[in-house]
Computed example of a mutant assay.
Amino acid sequence: MPGLLRGIARTAVVAGTATAVSNRVSRRQAGRWAREDEQQMPSAPPPAAGGDDVIAQLKDLGDLKAQGVLSEAEFEAQKRRILG
């Protein structure tokens, strides 16, 4: 009976360790993918010459910010670029 309990305990320790390692690897990989996605973020469209186009671009830029595609700093930089 002690041999059986020792075997069960060892299996539990190995399974727990494997689960912890697997979870850690998954979190690290998800973080790496998130950083790669942030680096590949699309920029706003280039500015056009007309006044209506500027307003449309600013609205599109605001939509991208509201969707979380652009950060506050990126939004401000693109807005300054559009407004000249």
Rank of each mutant, 00 (worst) to 15 (best):
P2K: 04
R35I: 06
I8V: 09
S22R: 12
E72Q: 08
L61D: 03
A56H: 10
T11S: 07
M1K: 11
G51Q: 07
G16M: 07
A73K: 03
E74R: 12
L61W: 01
A30K: 15
S43F: 00
E76L: 01
V69D: 01
P2H: 05
V21G: 02
P46G: 01
E74I: 05
L61V: 03
G50Q: 09
Q57F: 03
N23V: 08
A15Q: 04
T19Q: 03
A30T: 11
A49Q: 13
I8R: 07
D60M: 13
A20T: 05
P47L: 12
A48G: 02
A18I: 13
A34V: 04
A18T: 15
D53E: 14
E36N: 00
K79D: 03
A44C: 13
T19C: 09
L4F: 15
G62L: 10
I82A: 01
P45G: 08
Q67V: 10
E38G: 03
A56L: 13
M41L: 08
R80W: 03
Q67W: 12
R35N: 13
A18D: 14
A44D: 07
P45H: 07
S71H: 01
L70I: 03
S26N: 15
D60H: 06
N23T: 05
Q78Y: 04
I55A: 09
E74C: 00
K79C: 11
M1V: 10
E74D: 05
A73N: 04
A20D: 06
G62M: 09
M41C: 03
A9L: 14
P42S: 02
L5C: 06
L70H: 06
S43V: 00
L64D: 10
G16P: 06
Q29C: 03
K79R: 08
L58F: 04
R32Y: 11
R32S: 04
Q29H: 11
R24A: 07
P47S: 04
R10M: 06
A66P: 10
W33I: 13
N23L: 14
F75H: 12
R32F: 10
V13W: 11
G62A: 12
W33V: 11
L70Y: 05
L64N: 09
T11Y: 05
E36S: 05
D60R: 08
G3L: 07
R32N: 07
Q29M: 08
G68L: 02
E36V: 12
S22F: 12
V54C: 04
L70W: 09
R27Q: 15
R27T: 09
V14H: 10
E76W: 01
A34W: 02
S22P: 02
V69H: 00
Q67L: 13
G68T: 02
G7A: 15
M1W: 06
L58N: 02
D37Q: 11
I82V: 09
L83F: 05
V21T: 12
A73I: 02
E74P: 00
D53M: 05
A9T: 11
S26V: 11
D37G: 00
